[in-house]
């Protein structure tokens, strides 16, 4: 399978899971957000919001070359 590159950003408590080369992160073409979450070994309930290029997306979204992916945990404090 062809390889593509995305920009990956992990917020707050997800930041420790950020891989090397997150600004130019290589994945296999056809990878979904859910597959990437699994590959990065993020805790299953740790991701609440998924943003691709500034827009909310679902875990089934298939990543495309150059996508800016941001993963955000649940935040509820006051």
């Amino acid at each position: 399978m062809a390889k593509i590159h995305i920009t990956l950003k992990l917020f707050a408590t997800l930041a420790p899971y950020l891989p090397e080369n997150a600004d130019h992160f290589q994945i296999t073409d056809g990878t979904t957000v859910q597959a990437l979450i699994t590959d990065l070994q993020l805790p299953s309930d740790a991701v609440k919001l998924i943003f691709v290029n500034g827009r909310k997306q679902e875990t089934t979204y298939v990543l495309k070359p150059g996508d800016r992916l941001g993963l955000f945990p649940p935040v509820g404090g006051g």
């Binding site: 917020f11 707050a12 408590t13 309930d45 609440k48 919001l49 909310k56 955000f72 945990p73 649940p74 935040v75 509820g76 404090g77």
Partner: peptide, 30 residues
């Protein structure tokens, strides 16, 4: 970390941020 939004009466609102209210944790990462 923080987040801010504005919800008008006809908007989907919190469901877009936290998911369905039937599957909610009481607290977030705070």
């Amino acid at each position: 970390t923080g987040q801010v939004t504005v919800i008008f009466p006809e908007d989907k609102g919190y469901e877009l941020i936290y998911g369905k209210k039937e599957h909610l944790p009481a607290k977030g990462i705070e």
